[in-house]
Amino acid sequence: MASAVDTGVQSGRFWRVLIYVTLIVFAAFYLLPLFVMLVTSFKSLDEIRQGNMLALPLEWTIAPWISAWGSACVGLTCEGIHGYFGNSIKMVVPSVLISTLLGALNGYVLTKWRFPGHRWIFGLMLFGCFIPFQIVLIPMSQVLGLFGLAGTTAGLVLVHVTYGIGFTTLFFRNYYEAFPNELVRAAMIDGAGFFRIFWRILLPSSGPIIVVTIIWQFTNVWNDFLFGASFAAGQSAPMTVALNNLVSSSTGVKEYNVHMAAAMIAALPTLLVYILAGRYFVRGLMAGSVKG
């Protein structure tokens, strides 16, 4: 019974039932929008007009999904969102990889190769995490213009890497803080240099924190709207901006089913990342908090 469940506090049967009921109600409440989106995306427009939002489709159809992917109108072009989906992938993959790698390198230097003022550097990087996006819009656009990257995916990658480094450095620094110094010293005596120690010793032992950083960065970069809308116009816009344009492009009828399908497509990658690696996320965030 209760003793079979390993919890910190033993609670009575009544409270246990109450807790479960509350949790189920809340879970259902939070999942409701997702449910509505899903069922709507599989309905025909006629069925939607009948008005029962929560009802399952009478006739399942994947036409809205096909339309959203290949032929829906975004602004003036009617080629669906697949091009923008590609843009987002081209933006997310390098942004995540570069910021993760730089974060790892920073964390390594800030814990194992400390230099005078390392606290200040780290403090400033942390501070960078908390600067609101809106403040940097204008200076950032100037910098991108200067580099000739305005309106390109490469420019967006630069923006996201810059913004991501603060967080990735924080993750890796805290992880490597608990990484034994003796290992680095042993590798030094064994004759390994700065990068060799990083590649051969630290990075292979950083699985959990790499997963955490990738999930975090992937979600943030993929879901970003502000930078995408500001720095990448027209054909190089990422998925989130395209979704907005799709919904606001009016051709007479509001195609709710297509919009929902497009929104689902936009949300799928992050969902997928969570499902595949979510358990490492919690594990990685807790790493170091408990010994052993």
């Binding site: 010293r185 042993a186 005596i189 064994d190 390994a192 010793i201």
Partner: peptide
């Protein structure tokens, strides 16, 4: 350290995990 021709055994063993 790598050029001193020494080898060290650490308290925590410091084996590469």
């Amino acid at each position: 350290p790598s050029e001193r021709d020494i080898a060290m055994v650490f308290q925590s063993y410091a084996l590469y995990p």
